[in-house]
Amino acid sequence: MTFDGFETLAIHAGQEADPGTGAVVVPIFQTSTYTQDGVGGLRGGYEYSRTGNPTRAALEECIAALESGTRGLAFASGMAAEDTLLRTIANPRDHVIIPGDAYGGTFRLFSKVLDRWGVKWEAVDQTDSEAVRAAMRPETVAIWTETPTNPLLNITDIEALAAIAHEGDALLVVDNTFASAYLQQPLTLGADVVVHSMTKYMGGHSDVVGGALVVADPELGDRVAFHQNTMGAVCGPFDAWLTLRGIKTLAVRMDRHCANAERIAAELSGHPAVGQVLYPGLPEHPGHDVAKRQMRAFGGMVSFRVRAGEDAALKVCDRTRVFTLAESLGGVESLIEHPGRMTHASTAGSPLEVPADLVRVSVGIESADDLVADLLQALDF
């Protein structure tokens, strides 16, 4: 019997009971190497843990199932996953289209590392499909998108971008970190590769750093796996085990994250100290209809602009007591940050620079009443 329910896959895919002991939970295979039964006589195909590890393999099978992909690959961080993928698909003089409001770490990778390697890139407003089409070149190898974007919560139409990419024999790569595999499955909408920072919602407890790629095409999966092994930025067995533990509760956590975020977005809308609330669940959000079509719910991230400017935005970040001032996102605890000074400082002075009055919150699973009260008192100045 096969099972298709997301919640069931999250708990069981790749996680059968250990054949030797019957352990219900996948063991942590904390080993660097494996005994061989004679030269080349590998037990289970394992020889060295950079190349393969049973705990990591369980995680990779699970994430592939959750994203409806043919192969999953787990890395030491989201940025390690991004770098490995780009080294696989792009050569010097190739061209990649990135979002006009890309994550700061992604922008830094393109502008400070891949640019020196000769990979050309262009930042485009990807909410405008025709602008993306106009940016395509014969040497374009990929459209790289985020939806929702970090930190402006813009929404891109995955099906539309997939069609544009494939018309130009390019790949569509979707950073699915903000949505998580529970809220959105880009491969089913035509994307070729999904990227995750598993540090965020997939792990879910702010206690592990990891990244993942899931591919639709097995041949591309083989190529990426070759680079994963060759470059070596793999997910360790304990990190893989922690991430598997987090994934088991992903569905129930995301339901609560989304419910709390919707409540906060509604409470902040119309607040006299708030100039704009950025949340795709609001009917007035320009990407609301697309998000409603391609997402199960609208996510746990909310950004807002403080009417009085940057100093007031910084003050809000300092005044919260339930929201913790910290980078990252997607954990059970609520976090608050100032993107311009923190996660997106690398975009300063570039066309991707974020507004100085912007505050981003990662809404946790605490009491919604407590979270709302905390933000309201922080805005009371």
Rank of each mutant, 00 (worst) to 15 (best):
F6V: 04
T8I: 14
L9M: 11
L9K: 14
A13H: 08
G14F: 01
E16H: 10
P19R: 05
G20N: 11
A23S: 08
V26N: 00
P27I: 07
Q30G: 12
T31V: 15
S32F: 10
T33E: 15
V39C: 03
R43W: 04
R43M: 06
T51D: 10
P54I: 07
R56C: 00
A57C: 09
A58H: 00
E60M: 00
A65W: 07
G69L: 08
T70H: 12
T70K: 09
G72D: 01
S77D: 01
G78L: 02
G78P: 01
T84G: 00
A90S: 10
V96A: 04
I98T: 06
D101M: 12
D101L: 13
Y103P: 01
G105L: 15
G105C: 07
F107P: 01
L114A: 04
G118D: 06
V124G: 08
T127W: 01
A135D: 11
E139I: 07
T145V: 15
E159A: 14
L161M: 13
L161D: 04
L161P: 05
A165L: 09
A165Q: 06
E167R: 15
G168I: 04
G168L: 06
D169L: 07
L171P: 03
L171D: 03
D175K: 05
F178S: 08
F178M: 11
S180F: 05
Y182P: 02
Q185R: 10
L187F: 03
T188F: 06
A191C: 08
A191L: 03
S197R: 02
K200R: 14
M202K: 00
M202C: 04
M202P: 00
H205P: 02
H205V: 01
V209R: 12
L220Y: 01
G221N: 07
Q228R: 15
T230D: 10
C235G: 02
C235P: 03
G236K: 04
P237R: 00
F238H: 14
F238T: 15
F238W: 08
A240C: 03
A240I: 00
L242G: 02
L244R: 00
I247K: 00
M254F: 05
N260L: 13
E262H: 12
E262V: 05
R263L: 15
A266G: 11
A266Q: 11
P272H: 12
P280T: 06
E284I: 04
D289T: 14
V290A: 14
K292N: 15
V302L: 04
R305S: 11
R305L: 13
E310V: 08
E310K: 12
L314Q: 15
C317M: 06
R319S: 14
R319E: 10
T320F: 08
R321I: 05
V322W: 13
V322A: 14
T324E: 08
A326N: 09
V332T: 15
H338F: 02
G340I: 09
G349M: 09
P351M: 07
L352C: 06
V354T: 08
P355K: 09
R360H: 12
A368I: 08
L376H: 11
L376P: 03
A378D: 05
L379N: 02
